[in-house]
């Protein structure tokens, strides 16, 4: 499979938490722009580590070592200041984590506030409205923008977190099992939202949920013990996987 004009290129990426033991083992892959790429695999296969490496959040752990290249629009992010990288690659986490002391409004523009960027009021208003509309939350919260974000339901909080990431206009949106803490209805809304968002954003999503990957992703990666076993169009991988281990995983024989 060849991806033309990839927005993101992983070249021989290896990551280790303890010397001599790679959590991610020379992974190479091109990621398509404005598509959803899912990363699947059993627990501990390195999928979250790989995703976190793309905005260098994996470096929060001590003694981490990363080799290879990760090119975002041709720029090696492993050689770029992490603060800059994280503004280009937004991240949404497993559990919704809005800032508890900030209002909904401030949560959306938190990226600007925390980075000390002050915008004119009109621009902020527009940004908040646009970001909340992007995640389908505007109609639900437009009358309570200045209330704390923590009073929203779990699904709404997660959409608020997506809006917060989107407000910085990232080139790629990284999602680390964004629906695993949500109920099926909220999960469904987020999935619809992602299909909508891919018109504008490139999305990479780590998921435990195979049917979720099948429903929403265009491309899928299957990782096992730190290795990228298979990477293909989702449809092809789910109907006709080329590696035996992928087939075993997808048919529930391990994982």
């Amino acid at each position: 499979m060849v991806i033309t004009n990839p927005i993101l290129q992983l070249k021989d990426v290896s990551i280790s938490y303890t010397p001599g033991k790679n959590a991610v083992e020379s992974v190479s892959a091109d990621i398509a722009e404005k598509q959803i790429t899912a990363i699947m695999g059993p627990s501990g296969c390195g999928k979250s580590t790989l995703l976190r490496a793309i905005n260098r959040m994996h470096e929060l752990y001590p003694d981490i070592k990363t080799t290879g290249e990760i090119l975002l629009n041709g720029k090696n992010i492993l050689k770029t200041n992490p603060m800059e990288v994280r503004r280009m690659a937004g991240m949404v986490f497993q559990r919704p984590n809005p800032f508890p002391t900030m209002s909904i409004y401030d949560n959306v523009i938190a990226g600007y506030k925390l980075n000390g960027i002050s915008l004119p009021k009109r621009e902020k208003d527009e940004l908040v409205e646009q970001s909340l509309k992007n995640v389908g939350l505007w109609d639900e919260v437009k009358d309570s923008l200045f209330k704390k974000g923590t009073f929203l339901s779990g699904g709404q909080q997660q959409r608020l977190c997506i809006a917060r990431a989107l407000s910085l206009k990232p080139q790629v949106l990284l999602m680390d099992e964004p629906t695993s803490a949500l109920d099926p209805i909220a999960t469904n809304r987020i999935e619809e939202l992602l299909l909508d968002l891919k018109k504008e954003f490139t999305i990479m999503i780590v998921t435990h949920n195979m049917s979720q990957a099948a429903r929403i992703s265009d491309y899928s990666m299957f990782m096992y013990l730190g290795n990228l076993i298979e990477y293909d169009e989702t449809q092809k991988m789910f109907t006709n996987p080329s590696d035996k281990r992928t087939e075993e995983y997808l048919t529930g024989q391990f994982g």
Binding site: M57, R86, F93, N97, L114, A165
Partner: peptide, 11 residues
């Protein structure tokens, strides 16, 4: 997760 949320925004 609070610290992660902040750092992930490039702060």
């Amino acid at each position: 997760s609070l610290k992660e949320a902040g750092l992930a925004l490039g702060a």
